[in-house]
Design a protein around this nucleic acid. Structure first.
Lengths: 235, 235
DNA sequence: GCCTTATGCCAACACCATTGACGTTATCGC
DNA sequence: GCGATAACGTCAATGGTGTTGGCATAAGGC
């Protein structure tokens, strides 16, 4: 076998690579993030990553079991950055809004990485911390446990789902340089009004809105509904 | 060059492949869908697809510009199936609910394919038809154009986003056979109550709810909010 | 029945992840 | 200080991938 994959903590003998750099889990993940950002999600490969690090591709297998494990490590790094600095204020609605937007923003800061990792549920420490935070906000707001769990589930999955979706289109746009956004001005704007009357009637509005993420609107609608339920039930 | 990619409509000289089958766009897409379902999202490759069809891999390039274009065709097929048989009834809310659940269901019927395609905006005919349908329901319900477009955007992106997210976990579960669902009974249920009081307090509720998709709840909340807005504005 | 050309096939290229064997050298116990 | 051990970087090779140019053939319009 070629892969005991010594844990990072037990790693002591750091030999510099042929080109002089000293490897580490953190350095590899960081470099991979930079490569994803600069060369797109297809630009990350063991060979290229090795080349950038000045190391043989096979060296990476001393640190990660495979590209899949590296991908999960990158995802961990992203979710970790999402919660950094968040503290609950007093208002449950703005707390949740802030949390949702933070998650969305953290993923979109690295679209190419997000699209690779966003759909993986890890169950790792920082993800659990986020879950606890959301549940806490809802229960303190006065939602009974059943409602709190239901709303929590919708909220967290909505955030992750939109993060992945928006990261996907952002990554695609950055890579192909051909504006998918322009699709609304070209294809959709010139559809025959008889066959597609509603699109034709709202084409300018569509063109203006489809450029941006729908997440803020969807999030606000979810909060609307929750607030309505809270008003009807408790106070 | 090797790829004029004759359009399906202009295709007339159908020569049977060495193994006797006669190729077509539809047959290729259909076969690809079956392969994705049976062998997972990593099981689809030009070579394997060719082998199953009894054709040389390069033959596929007479029908699609590349694997990327094939992927988009698969996505188009999925969205098409979502709309099959849908007719608007009288009530806008149940119309939208039905449409949303159809999209979600159509994608989840082919999780491996959905995970490849759900984040691609194709701009192809059947996708446009779906957009037109949603906009029509909203405008007929009495929403002013601005609100209709805003709600349409949130609705369609939320449907696709959840479809992709849920398909991802479904595909992962099917491939690795290790139940992610059990995560809530194992990891989360045994967290220290001091550090994670809210998770601990709601653990049984969480375990029961996290197994299912949050999409129906999120959809209903979106519809709640829209109905509230309609009530306040027009009557 | 001829001609054109669409279309299937072949061979080849460049890339990919992954692995096993091999040396070298950094660190630990003494 | 010194030797031993094994961590870890490197090399070479395997079997996969998408994609392309050239070629032969048969299908269909005339």
């Amino acid at each position: 076998m070629a892969k005991p994959v010594v844990s990072e903590a037990a790693r002591r003998r750091r030999r510099p690579t042929r080109s002089g750099t000293v490897l580490s889990e953190a350095l590899i993940v960081e470099t991979a993030l930079r490569m994803l950002r600069e060369h797109g999600s297809a630009g990350l490969s063991a060979r290229r990553l090795g080349a950038v690090l000045g190391a043989d591709p096979s060296t990476l297998y001393r640190y990660f079991g495979g590209m899949d494990e590296l991908t999960r490590a990158i995802g961990e790094e992203l979710t970790g950055r999402a919660l950094d600095g968040w503290r609950p204020g007093g208002d449950w609605r703005s707390d949740l809004r802030d949390l949702g937007l933070r998650i969305h923003r953290a993923y979109l800061a690295h679209p190419q990485a997000a699209v690779l990792t966003a759909s993986r549920v890890t169950g790792r420490p920082r993800e659990i911390a986020a879950d606890e935070a959301v549940l806490g906000v809802l229960r303190r707001a006065g939602f009974p446990d059943g409602a709190a769990v239901r709303i929590y589930h919708a909220f967290i999955d909505q955030s992750l789902a939109f993060a992945a979706l928006d990261a996907g289109s952002l990554a695609l746009a950055a890579e192909t340089r051909e504006a998918d956004e322009g699709l609304w001005e070209t294809t959709y704007a010139h559809l025959p009004a008889e066959a597609y009357p509603h699109i034709a009637a709202t084409a300018p509005l569509l063109a203006a809105r489809m450029k941006d993420s729908a997440y803020p609107v969807a999030l606000e609608m979810l909060l609307d509904s929750a607030e309505g339920e809270l008003g009807r039930a408790g106070g």
